[in-house]
Nucleic acid binder design. Structure first.
Lengths: 159, 159
DNA sequence: GCGTCAAATGTAATATTATAACATGAGAGC
DNA sequence: GCTCTCATGTTATAATATTACATTTGACGC
């Protein structure tokens, strides 16, 4: 699975994720309803993070709901089932690139092109986990988001 | 400097931070105005993160300003000069525990008692930095926040 | 079929967080 | 005293998110 920054077959990328969501829902008796499915598709369109209010007009135009709770509910569903993540720094959501796998996501956010790449993080076993353990702090969830410049945007700058 | 979770002389804690802010301002020709100073004091009161709208009523009661921009400006000032940090996960701010030092903060947030501890993080040299370097991603800022249970709240639960 | 229950959706209203824009004031340096 | 910069006062509004309650739909047991 790609991280998003390098070149990749994005069609496969999308198909894989949708398929993973369908399978997971089938296996766990969850409903991937039209709204939920469409929101996931929108999140998958680019490797960007979308705000709830970026998504809402599209849903409204397609007759899938026009009020904020509609999109927030869909995002909650996707997030709690591991199909999407919230990027706290951006107050925005992005599709999960490792659906089905148990993972702690970390994000790299390019401030030039707004691309968001999800990479595996393992805070519990990493530096941070060791620091927490030392202090007797028990980690539940971790927010790890770095902002900077992605490889392609660095190239653009230097050429 | 304490992290906040363990027992400590909080008076010293506050005094040290205020002093550091005063010194830094004197050295850099910055003004630690009444509003700014008061906001810093409020952030230092407990090792908690405060939202802008938690702070505003106090400022208003003390005649230091009653409109949102007042508190946001003060927070911007404190943050850009390294006296406070924003905790993205909470949309709230906390006083810096290592003022004057060049550091990448990480936070441990106790979801039971709301205590926030700042610990040093070094993403650029740590696991995350290595991952970023490998991908050719250049890090500008890092948000590292873990949420879980602090030592004292774990004790309470088990007794 | 029919009742009933849970999950999902529709909708109005409102809460919370944050910023834009412009006017006013206060002090430093000339 | 002039002017320039920084800080503050104030109004309005933007952006993000949730509460609360009504309605619909489909599964399941009877």
């Amino acid at each position: 699975m790609s991280t998003g920054f390098e070149k990749h077959d994005h069609g496969t990328c999308v198909a894989t994720s949708i398929k993973a969501a369908e399978d997971h829902c089938a296996a766990h008796k969850l409903q991937l309803t039209p709204v939920r499915r469409r929101v996931l598709e929108l999140l998958l369109e680019g490797h960007k993070a979308l705000g709830a209010y970026d998504i809402l007009p599209t849903l409204a135009a397609e007759g899938l709901g026009s009020q904020p709770p509609v999109v927030y509910r869909a995002l909650d569903f996707l997030q709690s089932n591991g199909f999407a993540h919230k990027v706290e720094k951006l107050n925005a959501w992005t599709a999960c690139m490792h659906p089905g796998e148990d993972h702690n996501p970390a994000f790299m956010i390019c401030s030039d092109c707004d691309m968001v790449a999800e990479i595996p993080a393992s805070p519990v076993t990493g530096d941070l986990g060791r620091a927490a353990e030392k202090m007797g702090f028990s980690i539940n969830t971790a927010v790890i988001e770095v902002e900077g410049t992605c490889p392609s945007c660095q190239e653009v700058k230097t050429t």
